[in-house]
């Protein structure tokens, strides 16, 4: 068996680009909800196991037994409506999350390499580009896959906002489908 590590400069033969694996997708809420449900199932097993263990050893007071005894003699009361509402809401939330879409927040760079940035990185890039512009004191950006909203504070230099927009658009021009850049400018001392 030979294990080799290639040198820094690889053979310059066919140089076919590495095919892209496609953009990654996060699992979204179901990504942590699944493990949580698994832990709950283990919890149910622990409760059953405790019951079996205590009863096999001659005891009678178990978690399950106490819970069942606590329900004995319960009669209708208005507070149960609140409990019911909470249960229905949790149930609806679970159903929604079960059908929830996977999280897609990656934007591809131009080319076939499969390089991508997340929307958070796009926001940082836009902030970085806008901060370089003369007259921009502070820049913040929030970005989605379609739009990047740049909020800047300027010294009042005329044209700073359009220059910031151009800088941001230039910074994003290498993306396969760059998000639209929107600029909101405020001047220092502006009441808004």
């Amino acid at each position: 068996m030979t294990t080799t590590t290639p040198g820094r400069h690889a053979a310059d033969q066919s140089r076919a680009p590495l095919p892209s694996a496609g953009l990654p997708t996060g699992a979204g809420t179901i990504g942590w909800l699944g493990p949580l449900l698994a832990v709950l199932l283990v919890g149910v097993a622990v409760v059953l196991g405790q019951d079996a263990w205590v009863r096999l050893n001659g005891g009678t007071t178990t978690w399950l037994g106490s819970a069942v005894a606590a329900l004995d003699g319960l009669s209708p009361a208005p507070w149960m409506a609140a409990v019911g509402v909470v249960l229905v809401l949790v149930g609806l939330w679970l159903v929604l999350k079960a059908f929830g879409r996977r999280k897609r927040d990656a934007l591809a760079l131009r080319g076939s390499s499969g390089a991508h940035l997340t929307t958070g990185d796009v926001a940082r890039l836009v902030t970085g580009a806008a901060s370089q512009v003369d007259g921009v004191l502070d820049a913040r950006t929030s970005a989605s896959r379609r739009t990047a909203t740049l909020s800047i504070t300027t010294t009042g230099t005329p044209g700073a906002d359009s220059q910031a927009q151009q800088a941001a658009e230039r910074a994003l021009s290498a993306l396969a489908s760059p998000p639209r850049v929107r600029v909101r400018a405020t001047t220092t001392g502006d009441p808004s």
Binding site: I30, L33, G34, L37, P76, A77, P78, W79, M80, A81, V83, G84, V85, V86, L87, V88, L89, V90, G91, L92, W93, L94, V95, K97, A98, F99
Partner: peptide
């Protein structure tokens, strides 16, 4: 599997919640 079981538990909770609420009232 996660999605299926979340759906199942969600439906059970909705039914249980509706029953508890209706019984309480």
């Amino acid at each position: 599997l996660d999605r299926f079981l979340a759906l199942l538990l969600g439906l059970v909770l909705i039914a249980l919640g509706a029953a508890v609420g209706a019984w309480g009232l």
